[in-house]
Design a protein around this nucleic acid. Structure first.
Lengths: 186, 186
DNA sequence: CTCACGTGAGACATGATTGTCTCAAACCGC
DNA sequence: GCGGTTTGAGACAATCATGTCTCACGTGAG
């Protein structure tokens, strides 16, 4: 029997491939009838929002995993740098599964999710601020830019892998290296 | 009277704000009846594809403007570097108007557009290759990655401006600086 | 065995969007 | 001014995804 969570997982896979997939397609992919799909999720939006929530959960988990607040508070440049790298590499891994949430309009338009996104961005910003203070990140860039830049490179990596321009296993390194050092030789 | 081109411009503005806008909304924004809109464009897809074409035209124009082929052939590091900067700054300007085409699924799914996108990416790649050869770009990154990275940062900048995290006039510098030098102090 | 429960299949109404069509009015060049 | 052309307004059919509902079936617990 397909667990509610299994359904969610299948939906994630399908929508990741085609964000416009209909409920019928999602149901088929989940090996479940459309009726059952609607028993689990009142509406399409409910499903999308839940998936958005899932991706934010994952984001939060990444932040927890590196213990951003503690690392930021430490002011230790080496720790901050390491946390930053872990974080970005983790994001790249996640973008594989949650990537569609990065650009899906239904998800992006949801007020609750947007609010939570802001909250998570704030948590992240604390790390960025500490990084700037300790010389790990450039102080001449706006604090808020770092998050966006990472986001953009995630979108880029996802697309590059999809197209076949870069191997999946290289994506993490490319994002991290480009982000930190840029594309010009030093 | 609304010229066909005016309509296209209005459609661009509307869809830039809301990529899911209906034909009715587009027509209203263009100050034209839905009937007339459909006289200009057979279908919604036709309209989208035309807008996609427009954005690719703009891209091509940017490549022409810096004369990529000639610059690449010159092998002159300074010229290459300058062209690269002009190109990216130009893209950032364009992303303001054409940005929605960056992520719209109807446009991205169109075979003809995708083909042309590849062709333009190829033209761009020539410059990147010359840049790598002349030491302007890192040789340890895959050639194809540069285009994606730029694309990603454009998406990032667009979003950052939309949110209000960065001022429009700063976007170009942020993208260029982050792309070239990275976010770590040198 | 039996009963409660979840499920699949499918019919159904609904709503939104799309593309077409018609007709009257406005507009254009001559 | 006239006749051809373009437009707006609105009706129209068709399509499609959605959400609801019913009913028969299978299963699993008691």
């Amino acid at each position: 029997m397909a667990d509610r969570n299994d359904v969610l997982g299948a939906a994630q896979r399908v929508l990741n491939a085609d964000p416009g997939a209909s409920m019928t397609v999602v149901a088929e992919a989940a090996g479940v009838s459309r009726a059952t799909l609607n028993r689990h999720f009142d509406s399409r939006e409910t499903l999308l929002v839940e998936l958005g929530t899932r991706s934010l959960d994952q984001w939060a988990q990444r932040l927890d995993a590196v213990d951003v607040e503690a690392v930021a508070a430490s002011g230790d440049a080496a720790r901050i740098r390491a946390a930053l790298e872990d974080l970005v590499l983790g994001y790249v891994d996640d973008s594989d599964a949650f990537g569609f949430a990065l650009t899906d309009h239904v998800i992006l338009a949801n007020a609750a999710l947007e609010e939570r996104t802001q909250a998570l961005a704030d948590r992240e910003a604390v790390l960025f601020a500490a990084a700037q203070a300790s010389g790990v990140l450039r102080a001449d860039l706006p604090l808020r830019w770092f998050g966006h830049a990472i986001y953009g490179l995630l979108v880029a990596a996802r697309e590059a892998v999809r197209i076949g321009d870069v191997a999946r296993r290289d994506a993490g390194h490319l994002v991290l290296s480009s982000l930190l050092a840029g594309v010009v030789p030093s």
